[in-house]
Design a protein around this nucleic acid. Structure first.
Lengths: 260, 260
DNA sequence: CGCGCGATTGAAGCGACTCAACGGCAGTGG
DNA sequence: CCACTGCCGTTGAGTCGCTTCAATCGCGCG
């Protein structure tokens, strides 16, 4: 139950972690050769539980995680998906325990940085500090974009924003970005976007009917990224519905059954 | 246009800023007496604009700010409200420019910390670093709670969560926490919670009809905080609607017109 | 092989959006 | 001093999309 699944020490892993955090450092610079604990998580396993005391922060090395919160009545609210280079556990720095749990959606690996080490490392290594601030700021941007997705009125627009978001995150990793392997269930996406999971299914069908994507279970291919981005622009009632300046024509307010 | 409204140097303001960030420091410890720029913002004025290059981060000393993003079609999405002790401008640390603008809802005052100074200060003063991490983590928690509010199905529940959230934030400042002076408009709240501003009006009326709050324009008095919190628990379909364990009885799924 | 879970699709009800009108308040300028 | 003009807040009525409940199908795993 409380046995740590797997843990090994990586001497000299600091450079890799800095690379994960997206900071460049002079090749000749002396780096503290602090050994870092690595922890491997199997798909479906939990990295840390909601309510657990904050002991460390984590840098995702491989795999994908889902961060969520479980209400008293059992409803599970998903707050985000973390991938390589993301920071996990920062929500506990302002309190004393984690406000959300984390499970791996696929086999994963993280660097575990104990809180004292974390502060010491940031103190002795400015590059690490900048990397952490970068990552934390990125997490805030992600949460902001989550609010932006949930702010969209139409569920198809929410899903379109989600797919564009995923595609963008993939592309900065250098990958194709038009083929998406969704590791989360429809229910997870629905919780993330604030709609029922059946609505996610229907929205996928709607986007597919518009020839914007091709969907087969969890395999999603973006057929028209520009069109999808235009579609994702749809917002709540603008100040003055300014058609005429529309980018390409695909800018639906509510009309989209015409393509069925 | 580009003239900074007001700016003065505060020698020895570092201790106050540390207090704002919620860190305790030994009274005898030597603090770098770095002069800090203070900037005063009048109500309705902007602290920084969306898209502006990131030059500094800001610590709110007094007043209230609204952070928002304006879409191409003019729709304004509100992402949060910042108060004393909050950090502003962190969203730009991962990119190079601000992703959202900030306006003061009342006369306000902030400490301006230029980015180089920011990193230098965090380097030389661990307490500042911890304070920043605390504040940043708190901002992430706020964004998480925003997602939580928007996840509620019923608009009255969203508003109830918002009021509970505000009350909690007030109470940590030591203030009464049952009287709320809303500085934002109904439209701002609606944008924040993802509903139309008319719905906010109606939801206020509904909560007032349930005797949970008393509302008069922007003056809100919480009559039954426990009841409001119970009401705010209402979520999307739980795994198994478990009545019987309800706290007090006020746990509505959809029924609330019965008290009109 | 059967069980359970995820995904899809259908049908029905209702709640929020939208458009609209009205009263109140503040700031402005004649 | 007082119209005038926005903006904010409230309330009403109608439409429509999402939720909810339900059934079905496919797939992986014990």
């Amino acid at each position: 139950m409380n046995s740590i699944p797997m843990r090994e020490l990586h001497p000299g892993a600091v450079p890799e972690m800095l690379a994960l955090l997206g900071v460049c450092v002079d090749p000749g610079q002396k780096l503290p050769d602090m050994p870092l604990a690595e922890r491997r998580i199997r798909a479906g396993q939990s990295l840390f539980f909601e309510g657990a005391p904050a002991t460390s922060i984590y840098v995702v090395r491989a795999g994908t995680f889902k961060a969520f919160h479980t209400a008293e009545d059992g409803y599970e609210q998903v707050f985000g998906f973390a991938r390589r280079g993301d920071l996990l556990g920062c929500d506990a720095l302002s309190g004393d325990c984690h406000l959300m749990g984390t499970v791996a959606l696929e086999d994963a690996s993280v660097y575990v940085v104990a809180l004292p080490d974390f502060y010491a490392l940031a103190q002795s290594l400015p590059a690490f500090h900048r990397g952490v601030m970068r990552a934390v700021s990125g997490a805030m941007v992600d949460l902001t974009q989550l609010a932006d997705m949930m702010a969209a009125v139409a569920s198809e627009v929410r899903l379109a924003r989600f797919l564009v978001h995923l595609s963008r995150r993939m592309s900065i990793g250098g990958q194709p970005s038009t083929f998406l392997h969704l590791l989360m269930t429809r229910r997870d996406i629905g919780s993330y976007l604030g709609v029922a999971h059946e609505t996610i299914s229907r929205s996928f069908a709607a986007l597919a009917a518009l020839r914007l994507v091709k969907v087969n279970q969890r395999e999603v291919e973006i057929l028209d990224l520009a069109g999808l981005q235009g579609f994702a622009q749809g917002t709540r009632t603008p100040v003055k519905a300014s058609f005429g300046t529309a980018v390409a024509g695909l800018r639906p307010g509510r009309v989209l059954a015409l393509a069925a």
